[in-house]
């Protein structure tokens, strides 16, 4: 047995060396400007911005859908756009938002519609990639997600040799201009796409999944827990629905209206009165990502919604 274990340890040690080499290569060629690496920058901005702040918590609909500078002027307080990727899952996003809130902060929460499914676990590969780049993000990972992360772990390791093989074949894509860390500005907004118009009309919108009312109530209960935790930290929160193309809204009008009614009745934080839908031409490449003009419209609407909810009074000591 000893001989077997010794040989096995040596063999596994060799594999660890190979993995370390591959990881070094992957970090240099892929991770440096990876889209998810922007998470670190957003956390740094969060740490360096003193409260009271306006925190935007959600997925990429916020990253690609808000002009934080304009919002900052309206709110007269620093804005930190934490929106990054819906694949991180609702629980990760909510935990991150709860932990970020400080005395006097105003937290605006927007969850993409699939995240409203109470048993949503996010996209394991996305979460794993983030964890590989920023292990400290592990503190926001819900225990219920761990089994799926373990199940997908091999795929994450596989990306390393695959990148090397692509590089050897001259097929490793270079850093993108849109989905890249360098495509974010200092406030956490994705700006790489702003000079481009609507690329494919935004594609189809999955929209609000057909969920029974009990499931939606379960989700709202979690949102209320979020609001309560944010309140416990001395901050306030508000909820804004993610944008939908007009035609998709019409397709699921009844379902969305029922959900809005439920939110108005059950949600323990203000529901911002922002337009639910925009013309399809205002969407960039997916039905959550807005073009420059769509982003302008939504930012104005958010500012008005915050004002309408009485959340945008001048702040003492604000900028």
């Amino acid at each position: 047995m000893r001989g077997f274990l010794r040989d096995l340890a040596v063999f596994l040690g060799l594999q660890a060396l190979v993995l370390a080499g591959l990881q070094g290569f992957y970090s240099r060629t892929v991770l440096g400007d990876h889209y998810l690496a922007a998470w670190r920058d957003k956390q740094a901005r969060l740490a360096s911005s003193p409260p009271p702040r306006l925190l935007l918590v959600g997925g990429s609909s916020l990253a690609f859908g808000v002009d934080s500078q304009t919002l900052e002027s309206a709110a007269r307080r620093p804005v930190v756009n934490l929106g990054l990727h819906a694949g991180l899952g609702a629980e990760f996003i909510l935990r991150q938002g709860e932990a970020a809130a400080r005395q006097g902060d105003l937290v605006v929460l927007t969850l993409e519609y699939p995240l409203l499914i109470p048993w949503d676990r996010g996209h394991a590969a996305t979460l794993l990639e983030l964890l590989a780049m920023s292990p400290d993000a592990a503190r926001f990972v819900a225990p219920r997600v761990l089994p799926s992360l373990l199940d997908e772990g091999l795929q994450l390791i596989g990306k390393r040799p695959r990148a090397l093989a692509l590089w050897a074949g001259g097929a490793l894509p270079g850093p993108g201009e849109i989905y890249a860390r360098s495509a974010f500005d200092g406030r956490g907004d994705a700006v790489g796409h702003l000079r481009l118009g609507s690329s494919d009309g935004g594609g189809r919108h999955g929209g609000l999944p057909p969920l029974p009312e009990e499931a939606l109530l379960e989700t709202i209960a979690r949102l209320n827990l979020f609001a309560s935790r944010v309140r416990d930290r001395g901050a306030r929160s508000a909820f804004a629905l993610a944008p939908v193309p007009d035609d998709d809204r019409q397709r699921q009008a009844a379902r969305l209206q029922a959900f809005v009614t439920l939110l108005r009745r059950e949600l323990g934080m203000p529901l911002l009165e922002v337009p639910l839908s925009y013309p399809r031409s205002e969407f960039f490449d997916t039905a959550y990502h807005l073009t420059a003009s769509g982003r302008r419209l939504r930012t104005q609407a958010l500012a008005e919604g915050l004002r309408g909810a009485g959340l945008l009074q001048p702040v003492d000591g604000g900028r």
């Binding site: 063999f11 060799l14 594999q15 190979v18 591959l22 590969a125 091999l154 795929q155 390791i157 596989g158 390393r160 040799p161 695959r162 090397l164 093989a165």
Partner: peptide
Amino acid sequence: YTLLAWVTLALAREGG
């Protein structure tokens, strides 16, 4: 064995 293991991982499809 090493080559086979890493080729396996490299060729594995995401969400196989």
